[in-house]
Amino acid sequence: MKFFSSILFITLTSFTLSKAQSLQQIWKSEEKLPVPESVLYDAKSKTLFVSLIDGEPGKKDGKGGIAVLNLDGSLKNAEWISGLNAPKGMGIYKNVLYVADIDKVLAIDIPKAKIIFSTQVPDAVFLNDITVDNKGNIYVSDTRTNKIHLISNGKSELYLENVTAANGLKYSGSELYVLAGTELIKFNSKKERIVIATGLEKPGDGLELLPNGDFIVSCWAGIIYHIKADGTKTKILDVQGKMNTADIGYDDKSKTVYVPTFNANSVISYKLF
């Protein structure tokens, strides 16, 4: 009987560990957000930063900005930062919000809501996502040049090249995870390339790393995947033709995924099960 119970426990445990994640909608923002590209959850302020392109994704028109949402989806500040061009990916380090804006990375003092400096990235064309390591080094992808740049102490240098359609980034430990076209790739401290998953239906956009080593990945076209650490992928949302799913944000404590819908001009939150 004990032997049978042990087998049953192991079987149920294995099933639980291998079960794919799923999403359930919580809320949708009511106020129109002009072309939201990225959402970043800030645990300290318990708010959401949303980058707004409000124009063409690669045009320097001064129409872009950063809005702030409350965690219930209500609008806290529609024009927290204005006068940007086409802001996309964001990252936070020590009360500073870093934002990719076409060919430069902006540093914004969060308490003061003020741009304190910017770093020009040489030869950049379409800076897209940002991730920050535990020392404050900033990694930013340039999707159209297939490069990833490193910004340290306000200076930019080339970190990786020939990373096809590099977009979503996430730094963890000593490893950099990259969504490159339809692949999820890991680069270790020696910059060795390790492919984790291939065959995404559309090019990847947003990338979030879960505590157990799995990933939540979005494709701009309207798809979200759960990808296990071993590369097994499961589509958990497909809204193609209805809305986009751009650079997602994630709060691990509440297990909430925040999805900017780009041309649908809203942010939608989902519970991750």
Rank of each mutant, 00 (worst) to 15 (best):
D109R: 08
K88N: 02
K94Q: 14
Q120Y: 11
N137C: 03
D61E: 15
I138H: 07
A43E: 07
L48G: 04
Y93I: 08
E79K: 15
N134L: 08
G73P: 00
I92V: 13
A100M: 01
K112L: 13
A113E: 03
T143R: 13
N95R: 07
V39S: 14
V39I: 14
L150M: 12
K88R: 13
L150I: 07
I66R: 11
P34T: 15
G58W: 15
S141R: 11
V121Y: 08
S38V: 05
K88W: 04
N95T: 05
G83P: 09
G62R: 12
S51F: 03
P57W: 12
I108R: 04
V121N: 13
N128L: 06
V35R: 15
L75D: 11
G65Y: 04
F126P: 11
I138V: 10
K147Y: 06
V39D: 15
I102P: 00
D54P: 06
K112Q: 08
K88Y: 04
G65W: 00
I108P: 02
A107C: 02
P111Y: 01
L127F: 00
D129M: 10
V50N: 08
I148V: 06
S118N: 12
D142R: 10
I108D: 03
H149D: 11
I102F: 08
D101T: 07
G55N: 15
R144N: 15
D42Q: 07
K112D: 03
K147E: 14
F49S: 12
Y41H: 15
V121L: 09
I148R: 12
L71N: 02
K44Y: 00
T47K: 01
A113Y: 02
D72E: 06
N70F: 05
A43C: 03
V140M: 04
G89I: 06
D133Q: 13
E56R: 12
E56I: 08
W80A: 14
F49C: 09
P34I: 15
L75Q: 07
A78E: 10
T47R: 07
D123H: 13
N85P: 02
Q120D: 14
V99N: 10
L106N: 10
L97G: 11
D142M: 07
A124G: 10
A113W: 09
K114Y: 03
D109A: 07
G73L: 01
N85L: 04
N146F: 01
V96F: 12
I148K: 06
I148F: 00
I115A: 11
L127Q: 12
K32Q: 04
Y98R: 09
G89N: 03
G55D: 13
S45M: 10
Q120E: 12
F117T: 10
D61C: 15
I102S: 09
